[in-house]
Design a protein around this nucleic acid. Structure first.
Lengths: 109, 109
DNA sequence: CAGTTATATAACTGTCAAGGCATGTAGAAG
DNA sequence: CTTCTACATGCCTTGACAGTTATATAACTG
């Protein structure tokens, strides 16, 4: 489970990240009640996310606060970058030209 | 396996997409020899990719040509977008300020 | 110290998918 | 029609988790 893509393949983990993104860090109990998952399940997922460098953990009096480490997502963004060109550059700048010369190779609706 | 993220969690499938991205479509046999995977394995992955809308297939005399459908990756890009702001805006514009006030909360090397 | 709260961990179980092997199939070639 | 090529598909085994339940740990409270 050391692969970033495999870590993010779990919908529950993406939901955890989404929740952390909208807040300035959350306690485990807040994630449990907020997402409606069992506490051990949340803890397990947090462990995976932590191992992947996607979240950080700090101890507090009321519990442990987990924060997003969005930086770890750059690897995914890097992989995606060359593909992004297919619908940003190509379609916007060269779309008409390509469509007129290779009408069957453009993206289908 | 209808979840895009789960589909892309497989390294072999990402390699297939990478290969297709660099070319204007490839035959199955070309993928097999180029990636060094077994033919049934490649066919299976292609089926998954096709179901996810990530590749398209056209029949030719020499075989079946698969092409990238980068458009299907937009869903992943959309999910990533709000996170991207964390290292584009925040780090570039406020990075120095945050580093000077919370030196331990910045991205680790 | 006893009890409560917050979280982690261990053990177990069910599910699911990846990869290998063998086989089916369709088209071109002879 | 037979053979080869290119590809798909079915079956099988194995391994990897996800989720639950039960229990451990740690800190705070009274």
């Amino acid at each position: 489970m050391s692969d970033l893509f495999a870590v993010l393949a779990e919908p529950s983990r993406r939901r955890i990240l989404d929740a952390l993104r909208r807040s300035e860090g959350l306690l485990v109990k807040e994630l449990v009640s907020g997402l409606g998952m069992s506490q051990p399940n949340v803890s397990k997922h947090l462990r995976v996310l932590r191992t992947a460098g996607l979240v950080s953990e700090t101890a507090e009096r009321q519990g442990r606060r987990y924060r997003l480490r969005a930086d770890a997502l750059r690897e995914m963004d890097d992989w995606l970058r060359p593909y992004r060109a297919f619908w940003t550059n190509r379609l916007d700048e060269l779309g008409d030209y390509l469509d007129s010369t290779h009408p069957n190779e453009g993206p289908q609706p």
